[in-house]
């Protein structure tokens, strides 16, 4: 089966500053794929490249076999994206936020849009908050509402930028569970950008690790294996192996 995402030799520079170069990877259908790395290594830039918001300086990215930057590409409607800030429309209730893509991009009648949006909010546990404004909810609720909006059109591919950032461990674990449920129950392929170690180990099937100093990929594979036996000192440090070793002594 052809991969859902195929990134080939992606590079990004801003002026003379190279963020990363020669980044290649594939994401298979039904996979939870994590892009990880420290702050400033270009994780979010890579995600923006995948969803068609940041044309790469060089390289090529195909989603569902199509070039996402091709003028006639209709791939974007098959992708749901949750941005780091949630990017909820502050002047709309949560229900209206989720209804918006249904209103813009589907032929569902108004009653159906409302019902479908309610279901999406129910899936992320926000049924009772449907009428609240984004300014009235917590950070964790905003992230969940943003996921509900990203799922509004039942896209087969979901990209989540730092879903756990700034959340307490319990809320973060709840989001991890939600991501696993989405994959298990709905068969959605999920790409997650994160540097939260607990989340990575909980949800990732495979990962790619970027490093700012190397300006590119320093590790790929199963994060649990990388955590155990990677020789790369940055990877080892990232997975706390050294810290854990000190703690064990």
């Amino acid at each position: 089966m052809a991969p859902l995402i195929q990134a080939n030799a992606l590079a990004q520079s801003f002026g003379a500053r190279t963020i990363f170069r020669d980044v290649s990877f594939e994401v298979a259908e039904g996979e939870i794929f994590v892009i990880l790395g420290g702050s400033g290594c270009g994780k979010s830039v890579l995600m923006r490249q995948i969803v068609g918001l940041q044309p790469p300086s060089s390289g090529h990215v195909a989603v569902f076999g199509q070039d996402i930057y091709a003028p006639a590409s209709d791939v974007r409607s098959k992708i749901g994206v949750m941005f780091q800030s949630g990017a909820l429309f502050g002047a709309m209730t949560l229900l209206e936020n989720v209804m918006l893509p249904l209103e813009m991009l589907s032929d569902l009648p108004p009653a159906a849009r409302r019902a479908v949006a309610q279901v999406k909010l129910g899936l992320v546990g926000l049924t009772d908050a449907a009428g609240r404004m984004p300014a009235e909810i917590s950070g964790g609720m905003a992230k969940r509402a943003a996921i509900a909006r990203a799922m509004a059109l039942d896209p087969p591919l979901l990209l989540l930028d730092e879903p756990s950032a700034g959340l307490d461990p319990i809320t973060s674990a709840g989001l991890d569970r939600l991501i696993l449920d989405l994959r298990h129950d709905l068969g959605i392929t999920v790409v997650v950008v994160t540097h939260e170690l607990a989340s990575i180990l909980a949800i990732a099937d495979r990962c790619i690790m970027l490093d700012a100093a190397a300006a590119g990929v320093i590790a790929t594979g199963d994060p649990r294996k990388l955590a155990e036996d990677s020789d790369n000192p940055t990877v080892a440090a990232f997975f706390n192996r050294q810290t854990l070793a000190v703690a064990a002594r």
Binding site: Q118, V119, K120, L121, G122, L123, T127, D128, A130, G131, D181, D185, L186, G187
Partner: peptide
């Protein structure tokens, strides 16, 4: 099985909201 699972999932998500 796949269809039944999705219906079951949505059923759990459509618990009526509390009255405003």
């Amino acid at each position: 099985d796949g269809v039944a699972a999705v219906i079951a999932l949505v059923r759990t998500a459509t618990i009526a909201p509390k009255a405003p």
